[in-house]
């Protein structure tokens, strides 16, 4: 158990300034730590990992790790990741996106990446808000929550990322919070080891922009809320129906095996080559 932090330090860029740019208590750093541990556990080399990130707070974590890192445009992370994976399937491509990034501006790309089952592990760091631009409501801001663009309460229904990914055909769909680090480590490690499109939703608190407007006094209160509210998927059904609706299930929702796009493409090129002989 020891040396967790030293292990992470080993993967950080030594010519970057620390501490990183994120706010105190922001869960993004915890996700980064979990990602590093997963990469380490699988024995992947730094050279074969490509971390593709979008725009927003989540996009900023890529620069700190010593992998191949690409900080792309807003919402288009998965398009870059698709190009990279198809161009060189030997690379381990990880896409890091925020909720606004992946589901609002990048919603279309998200659906299609899941549909075509491109070999990318997609992490959506869901903090229910646009953090970097100052706390505007996103497509995962829950109804009646406050933000700078929903000062009287959010009127729109929010997306359920897990359900969306399932409907779009992702073969691996999992969710954890940054408080449940062991689960997070496990699902990211599993996702990285699998072929195809693997979606991991991570609930991560933004106290600066979301918490303060929504009755969380401190960032710790938000972690306590996760502790109270998140429930392992298999325990969910044991609760009465009313309570079920109020809790957030965490765990692995879908785990299927389907050939990835790059595998299918390789099969076609093989077939064509055979035929031309």
């Amino acid at each position: 158990m020891a040396e967790v932090t030293q292990l992470i330090h080993h993967y950080l860029r030594h010519n970057k300034r620390f501490p990183h740019v994120l706010c105190p208590g922001c869960g993004h750093g915890i996700v980064l730590g979990s990602l590093v541990r997963s990469v380490h556990q699988l024995g992947l080399t730094k050279d074969e990992v490509v971390l593709v990130a979008g725009i927003g707070c989540s996009g900023r974590i890529a620069v700190y790790v010593d992998f191949n890192t690409v900080h792309t445009t807003h919402g288009r992370t998965l398009t870059f990741a698709t190009g990279i994976k198809m161009a060189n399937p030997r690379l381990k491509v990880i896409a890091v996106m925020g909720d606004g990034d992946a589901l609002s501006i990048g919603g279309n790309h998200f659906l299609h990446a899941a549909r075509r089952n491109i070999g990318v592990t997609a992490l959506i760091l869901n903090n229910n808000i646009y953090g970097m631009t100052g706390g505007q409501s996103s497509s995962t801001t829950a109804e009646n929550c406050y933000s700078t663009t929903s000062p009287y309460g959010q009127q729109e229904q929010s997306f359920d990322i897990v359900e969306l990914a399932k409907a779009a055909g992702a073969p691996y769909v999992a969710r954890s919070t940054v408080l449940h680090v062991k689960l997070l480590d496990r699902i990211i490690t599993t996702a990285l080891a699998r072929p195809g499109f693997n979606l991991v939703e991570v609930l991560t608190p933004c106290h600066t922009q979301f918490g303060r407007k929504n009755k969380f006094k401190t960032t710790v209160d938000m972690y306590k809320w996760y502790k109270k509210n998140a429930i392992p998927l298999d325990s969910l059904s044991k609760l009465p129906q009313e309570e079920q609706n109020q809790r957030t299930p965490i765990g692995i929702f879908v785990e299927e095996n389907r050939p990835s796009l790059e595998e299918r493409y390789a099969a076609i090129t093989c077939r064509l080559e055979e035929a031309s002989k």
């Binding site: 398009t79 990741a81 190009g83 161009a87 659906l111 299609h112």
Partner: peptide, 21 residues
Amino acid sequence: VFIQMEDEIASLGAVIGASLA
């Protein structure tokens, strides 16, 4: 490699990714 993307934004995104690779 040929890939048909979901729109032109995605197309150029994939092209940039492939060029980086």
